[in-house]
Simulated assay, not measured.
Amino acid sequence: MNKNIQFTHKVSREDDGKMLKQVLRNKYRFSKRMMSQLKLNRLVTVNGEVVYFTSRVKEGDEIEISFMEEESEQIRPQPVPFDIVEEDDDLIVIDKPPGLVVHPTRGYPEGTLANGLIHYWKKRGEKRKVRPVTRLDRDTSGLMVVAKHAYAHAFLADQMAKKRYERMYYAVVHGQVPEEKGTIDRAILPPDQAGIRSLTSEEGYPARTHFAVIWRFADATLLRLHLETGRTHQIRVHLSSIGHPIIGDTLYGSEDDQQLIGRQALHAAHLRLFHPRFREWREWKSPLPPDIRQLLEKLKPWE
């Protein structure tokens, strides 16, 4: 059966004499909504007893917070292959293969990563909602994080909003990028009816992508990219805007790359986040997948 997620905290000298609700807010940054749920459902104890949130705590008191078991989403469990890089009580880090949609949509109602996660958890007798912290396009491979409960998701989403995270990608693009490194800082508009996003110099969603050249080929370049923002299609539309679309990207590039690779050559290779429980940085890496390595072998060397 699913066990309740629990957090424990021993009251420090600095918090001696403070109200319980102050300690909870300072330590965990709970939202007002989450504080109300914890209070209403009597999910916080001090030294094993439920107390008022206005009660004063003293140094050495042990505070325990429990999160109730969640009802699973109405997503059909299906065995979907994906690799788990790391998993703990709060999050699961996945190395997503290309061709896998993260969550059911009208066009992809089944066979998604979410279907696979629900199936994986159900086999272990666990009920969870799928809460992606980072997302990847269907044909982008690599690392992504899914939170396993509401607090972890809220904490990590807040960290990302404050830009307390690092994401690094590799992309193989058309043409030789002349600069050794640079930054694309252009806002992105919402998608049109065809799902295509474009850039704007006026109103739009701010987006910033840093790039550095790793290797140049005769008619292509291998780039390393770091994101400051995480807009949908950000890397793809930014690189296309400077005249170097990603090889295999039929939406923002050419439809004539199928002989080279069957999807956009974009891979999320490195991820670094501040952990919601341990309050320390954790990082993960993923090597280039076989199809991108094969693409690099096909490209002509720079003479």
Rank of each mutant, 00 (worst) to 15 (best):
Q6I: 12
T8N: 13
D15E: 15
K18Q: 14
M19H: 14
K27Q: 15
Y28D: 09
R33Q: 13
M34N: 11
Q37E: 13
N41G: 05
R42F: 00
L43P: 01
V46R: 07
V50F: 05
F53C: 05
R56P: 03
I65E: 04
M68F: 04
D83V: 13
I92A: 02
G107F: 04
T112K: 08
T112R: 09
N115T: 08
G116A: 09
L117F: 13
Y120L: 05
Y120T: 06
W121D: 09
R128Q: 00
R128Y: 06
K129T: 08
K148C: 03
A157R: 04
Q159N: 14
M160T: 06
Y165C: 12
Y169C: 08
Q176S: 12
V177E: 14
E180M: 11
G182M: 06
I184N: 03
R197K: 10
G204H: 14
P206K: 12
P206A: 13
T209G: 04
F211S: 04
V213N: 00
I214A: 06
W215E: 06
R216N: 06
F217A: 08
L227T: 11
T229D: 11
T229M: 10
R231W: 02
Q234V: 03
I235N: 12
H238V: 07
S240M: 01
S241L: 01
I246M: 09
I247S: 08
T250P: 00
D256S: 12
Q259T: 02
L260K: 08
G262Y: 00
A265D: 00
L266A: 01
L273S: 10
H275G: 13
F278V: 01
W281L: 07
W284Y: 13
P289Q: 01
P290A: 13
I292Q: 04
R293S: 11
K298Y: 04
P301Y: 08
